[in-house]
Simulated assay, not measured.
Amino acid sequence: MDKQRLSGCIKSTATLIAGAIIYSIGTQCLISPANIAPGGAVGIALMFSYLTNLPVGGLTLMVNIPLLILAWFFLSHRFAIRTGITCIICSSFIDLIVAPYFPMYGGDRLISSLYGGIVIGVGMALIFLAGSTTGGSDIAGYLLRKKWPHISIGRFLMMIDGIILSSSVLVFHDIDAALLGLICLYAETKVIDMILYLSSASCKVLIVTQHPQQICTQIIRNIERSATIISGKGAYSGDDTNVVICTVRKSEFSDLKKINEAADENAFVMVTETNQVFGLGFRNFSEAIS
C-alpha cells in the first residue's frame, strides 16, 4: 500500500511538473510575444507585463495571491494549498527557466495564438490530471458561485474571461488582441476537453466494491463530493455486493482513481462521459432550458 501511494505521488508530481513546463512554454514563448491576453490570471499578468516590463511569472503569482487567500477562507484549505503550489511552480518556470533560455516566437500572431492555445491546453490538461489547477479564473468562478449559487461556474468563467479579453483591447490598443485571445482561449479549451474525457465536462463513475463506505468517506474528505451506495448481488457468484455511484468534474477524476485503487484494488469500475450534470455542485435545473 505504501509503495502504491509513493508511486502515485511520484507520478502525480511528474505529471504536474511536465504540465507546468509545457504551460510555461506556451505562455512565455508563444502568447507573450503576440501581445494577447487569453483570459485568466495569466491574461491579467500579460497585460501588466506589457505596461510595466515586469516578468510574467511573478505578476501571475501576484494576481493569484489574493485569490488564494480568499480560497483558503471560503473554499478549501486543501484546494488553496495545492493550487498555490502549482502557481508557484508555474510562475518559477516562466521567469527562471523558460524566459531566459527558450526562444520567443516572433512570427504571425494568428499562428502564435492558435498554437499557444494548443500548447497551454496540453499543459493545463496535465495539471488537471495531477489533481490541481492553475488558479486564476477557476478560483474566481468558485468564489463567485458561493455568493450567487444560482449561476453556473461556466457562466462566471465566461464573464471573467470576457472582461479580460475586452480589457486587452484597451491595454494593447488593438482590437485584434481580443479576437486572437478568443482564438487562443477556444483552442486551449478544446485541447483540454480532448485530453480529458473527449469533451465531457464531467463523468459518472460506477464502482462495484466490497468496501463502499471506505471509498465514500475518502470521496467526501478529499474531493468534497458525495456519492450514493446501492446494495446489489452478483449475477454469477450470487454474493452480496455494493455499487458506489459518483459524479465528478474532469479535474477531479484522477483523485477518484487514486481513492479507488487505495481502497479496493479488486473493484470493478465503469466510467461514463456526461455532457450535462444538474444538481448540487454542478449546474442548476433552471439552466437545462437556457
Results as ranks from 00 to 15, higher is better:
G43A: 06
L70F: 11
I111F: 15
F128N: 00
Q218R: 14
I163S: 11
A71Q: 06
M270Y: 13
A14H: 07
S199Q: 14
L143D: 10
A267D: 07
C216Y: 10
I220F: 10
T241C: 12
I289H: 14
N64P: 13
V244W: 07
I17N: 04
E224P: 07
G181K: 10
A130C: 11
A71C: 08
I36H: 10
I183Q: 11
F73H: 13
C29Y: 00
S168C: 12
S137F: 02
I25K: 01
T52S: 15
L61K: 02
P33F: 06
G8S: 09
I223H: 10
A45Y: 02
M62E: 06
G162L: 03
D193S: 14
M270T: 14
M47V: 09
S286C: 09
L51S: 10
T60R: 07
D255Y: 13
S200M: 07
D240A: 12
C87D: 12
V244C: 10
A45E: 05
D138L: 02
E261S: 14
K258Q: 15
T241Y: 08
R145M: 11
L185W: 01
W72Y: 15
C9F: 13
C29S: 13
I17V: 15
A14Q: 10
D176N: 15
G57H: 07
I85M: 09
L144Q: 04
L180I: 05
G43E: 04
E261C: 08
G135F: 05
S251G: 07
S76T: 11
K233M: 15
G123K: 03
A80N: 06
S76F: 01
V191G: 03
A41E: 05
G232T: 04
K258V: 13
G39Y: 10
K11N: 12
P100G: 07
Q28N: 06
D264K: 01
I21K: 03
E252K: 04
S32P: 06
I289D: 13
E188N: 14
I17A: 13
Y197S: 11
G26M: 00
L185S: 12
I118Y: 01
S290C: 09
F278I: 08
I215Y: 09
V169A: 09
L180Y: 15
M158A: 14
S92H: 02
S290G: 08
C9G: 13
T52R: 10
G26E: 00
S32F: 09
L144I: 07
L170E: 02
I85T: 08
R221A: 12
S152I: 04
S112P: 05
N53I: 03
I81T: 05
L30C: 01
Y115S: 08
G58N: 04
P100I: 06
D193I: 05
S24D: 00
L126F: 11
R155L: 12
M124I: 15
F268P: 05
E265D: 08
G84V: 04
A20Y: 02
L110I: 14
T133M: 02
I192Y: 01
D161R: 11
V42F: 03
T134K: 04
G238D: 09
F278D: 03
G57D: 06
I89M: 00
L126G: 01
F74P: 01
L51K: 14
I175L: 14
I151C: 05
I22Y: 00
H77K: 15
F128W: 05
L126W: 02
A201K: 15
V56E: 00
I207Q: 09
I81Q: 04
L206R: 11
H173W: 10
I153C: 07
D193A: 14
